[in-house]
Design a protein around this nucleic acid. Sequence first.
DNA 1: CGATCGATTGAAGGCTCTCAACCGTTGTGG
DNA 2: CCACAACGGTTGAGAGCCTTCAATCGATCG
Lengths: 241, 241
Amino acid sequence: MLSRTYAVSQPEQTAVRRLGSLARLSETDLRKIADAAADARYFPGRTEIVREGAEPARPTLLLRGWVAHQRILPDGRRQIVGFTLAGELFGRSWSCQDCALTSQVALDNVVLCTAPEAEPGSGLSLAYEKERLAHRLQLIDNVTRLGRMDARERVCDLLLELLERLQRSGEAEGNTFAMPLTQECFADALGLTPVHLNRTLQACRRSGDLSWRSGRVTLHDPAALARNLGRKRNRLQRDTG
Amino acid sequence: MLSRTYAVSQPEQTAVRRLGSLARLSETDLRKIADAAADARYFPGRTEIVREGAEPARPTLLLRGWVAHQRILPDGRRQIVGFTLAGELFGRSWSCQDCALTSQVALDNVVLCTAPEAEPGSGLSLAYEKERLAHRLQLIDNVTRLGRMDARERVCDLLLELLERLQRSGEAEGNTFAMPLTQECFADALGLTPVHLNRTLQACRRSGDLSWRSGRVTLHDPAALARNLGRKRNRLQRDTG
DNA sequence: CGATCGATTGAAGGCTCTCAACCGTTGTGG
DNA sequence: CCACAACGGTTGAGAGCCTTCAATCGATCG
């Protein structure tokens, strides 16, 4: 039976699935998340949520939508350093000098709330720690991608990462997921031009690796792709016990 | 007057300068570092200190030399994800699933020791926190470098980063520092081939940006380079107070 | 002196970029 | 209802950055 409090809508549903896949959450943890989610903020697509170097980046829970973390070079070139997907945590507060290292931009309609404080030793605290590990892993993967992969490999590798993350938070249907990114954004994340990304996507479609139509992406054989790219799966196990 | 214990040699000297530039260290902190440094381990160049995914990566203080953090793709391509320089901390232990995300390789003769535990709230604890912030910043800079800069910009940007870090720990003389990296290593960090890196370096020398002879690098106008590349300086202030 | 390693050079090719135009959809206003 | 603008996706041609493959050179070392 559903608790009456959460019966109408559960904006924190995705976050609970995601964090719950990283650690066992207690009733207290779940209540904290629900309370935090009750005080949500909304941002339309293309809004700058936090500007690089300006404000402190408070720990934030993304309830719905995608956020990009980006840098702009003096001449206007843009590099998207990483993404935060619905259910994930971003904006770690450092005990010192906590100003954002990147600008944070809403990619579609976004709902977020302040991340609740976690009791030391709680499941929530462990989940936060794993979120930070995951974030670091994504940065390292991104460096490898940009430094040593060609366009086709970059496309497949990033889509694989996105699929794995969305599967964990229950936002994928099999090997298919909703892709809110424009090709221009995707290109800025991969260090490519939109034109070349477009041609690369066509090559991937022709070779049967993926399909990308009307905002939905399907990877036809993720396991084979991961093998070819040297991607290790399941690097974020939930602690047993 | 020098303490008798440390009169002969001070292997922890560089680490103390580096950490002391990040936070005010107490006498207790200094003693802990010296004690840890007394139990040092040595690795010759090209030794693999930790293999990716294998052992846990314990927090380690690098007393002398340089360490590279790298990934190897299935077909043998190598990407150096980042460096640790003498005096710096590496190998954060995660409260969960603490296996190394990258392989760690000694680039020259390396001396390291287990990082001492920091009392909560101590200067050393703050310095560790700042080290982690610095490490994250370097990863983000690296993504931007590889994604959106051409070869000449990558070379200058990375050399600038190295110069700033070495200046902080007192390992640079003005705008000159000792560069233990082979061009092949440097190329693997920049996502370039050794051949193209070599030609790019020659172009940089001809245009007067830098000189690199017999293992010593000089940047002739770091401020101007940083301005052109959009590098913000002094992002790691020591807290005043 | 031969071997080894890193740095250097040359030539050719390819992956990716730039510039520009065109297409299809969506939304808006007359 | 249609014209129009705006936006994202697509296509073509040409140029350029970077890679690949080889060979040479210089220094160090046994």
